[in-house]
Amino acid sequence: MKKIINILLVMAVGMALFGITPGFAAEKVIRIGYPGGSGRPVSAGGWGYVQAKNLFEEEFKKDGYRIEYNYIKSQGPGCNEALANNSLDFSFHGDLPVLAGRSGGLKIKALTASRGGNAHLLVPTNSSIKTIKDLKGKRVGVGVGTWTHTLLARVLNDNGMTLKDIKVINITGSDFETAIATNDIDAGFGSRALVRRGVAKIIWTTVGKPVKYQSIFSLVVREAFLKQHPDIVKRFVKMYVKGLYLASLNKNETLKFNTRTGSALQDNIDDNAGQSIKYITAPRIDGQVTQLYKEVQLVAKNNGLIRKPFDVDKDFIDSSFLEAALKELNLENHWPNYDYNGNPIKK
């Protein structure tokens, strides 16, 4: 009797183990990855509306697909790894990780891109660091391989320094917040939430600076998945554009909606001051985005973050799904294209 119970126990444990192994279950699932910071595991903006309105779930219910959102704590680099080992189908992550992944041979295609993300260079409240130049020799926390890594390289380069002039500490999310609060690191890019909590102050910000300092986040898909399920990708992009459309209707509403991630409304307002809601929801990989991709790649190359640059224009961007979606939704003229400085191009 005891033996039978033991066997059953072993089987149960075995099944539990295999059950949670990704990719083992034969069920149909669409897996989406995001860099997961320290906030709640929900998204803002277009993704937020997609989630809140269950757009994917409704769209793919009839095919029997389950939708899985993965907030990846190791951020963009973690998304790349998950894509590489087939644990994700889509991912939405920052410029450096997308470019580094592609440069490293990751087979992904960029379907859409979002611009206008900001970051703030924080120092502990009692810190004597006032300018970028004061960072020399200091311990700067950064998520190595995330978009702020190239941003850090860029602002250091602007001030005649390189990453070698500071001590780079690889740290992300809540670890970063703790480290700033305990003075274990001297500076780093983070959100206004830390300022609000009184543990940090801002010495430099992308807000109000030329748009080249801001982030580009890209929706990427695994090439194999794209080849296997072009129809799903098409419908997926369409639903995503629908979410973006909903987000683009009213700036105040959307900024309020974005507090679902745990951010403060005033911080959202401050971060997006002077940016139109159309600008921050525009999905096209237009001239501005490709130009910024190239710039980031160059900065990354010059600072040793990308070893083998690739041709961004060639074989990386696939706008056909987005254009089809815009056409079907009758939104072809909803968002303008933007020039290098972020100004809409009049047709």
Binding site: P77, N80, A84, G104
Partner: peptide, 12 residues
């Protein structure tokens, strides 16, 4: 190696 991993430089 840590940095290379974060930058998806599997070869490094």
């Amino acid at each position: 190696m840590v940095i290379a991993r974060r930058l998806f430089q599997t070869d490094v």
